[in-house]
Amino acid sequence: MAFVNLKNVTYKYPLTDKPALQNINLQIKEGEFVAIVGPNGAGKSTLCYTLAGFAPHFFKGELSGTVEVAGKISNQSTLDEWVLNVGLAFQNPFNQISGAKYTVFEEIAFGLENIGIPRDEMKKRVEDAMTLTGITDLADRSPYSLSGGQQQRVALTSILVMRPKLLVLDEPTSQMDPIGTREVFGTIRKMAEEGMTVVLVEHKVEWIAEFADRVIAMHNGQVLLEGNPSEVLTSNVLIKNGFGLSRYTSAAREAKKLGIWKKEKLPVTLDEAVEGFKK
């Protein structure tokens, strides 16, 4: 049985007519790393909020169908129970800083304090999580004195430290440089290999091709395509619907028109492109 199971999920925000999610059916295995792509307004963030329980528990609105994570049904539980299983980090790191803490170490411990983890275990978990995301040197800094990329790492660490079974990330690396992005994707990949299920919204498609197990392409609140990253991310369906392609895919498409690209399959990552152009 699937770890995450969405059946006919339709969700409407309050005071709106058009559903933000329409009839979504989705199954995710435990330990799977799933990426979501789609143009603005496709419902990616709403899907994240739905998985994390905030739709409907926080935003209200109408949810129909069933959202099931780790054997529990969203409509039948409360948000404070739900967040113990599902962690959410989103794009704007500044607003994810609690404001209640004066150092990064305390900031990361905030969630553990809330759910009542004993002090010794708390310290150990915070240290482990900071080592994992590579921010041990920031421990005594004020969270407000950090750069956007560093704050994003703190936000991610603050969720990882809670050890959710399902980790939902909405563009967690938008303010990071490529080196930082690679490190963070590496960390997320590692978490998935250790059994954490990951759902990630990301615009940088070449990273998805390299790290994710599966891609879901969303459009107008519906799932347009899903499958293997290298197939989905080069599909003609995406191009027709105004999705952004990786620059390697775009280059190879142009090259194909000129007859330089000989292979049938288009590349998504740099390595695939180099490989293809060599032949």
């Binding site: 404070d80 113990l84 609690s98 304090e113």
Partner: peptide, 26 residues
């Protein structure tokens, strides 16, 4: 908007949890 996002962020970190809170500082 910030207040809403911050509410989501702290809620995601168990702010309204019914468990008895602990404290990092001794």
């Amino acid at each position: 908007i910030e207040v809403e996002e911050r509410a989501i962020a702290i809620e995601a970190r168990g702010f309204t949890s019914k468990n008895l809170k602990t404290s990092l500082q001794e």
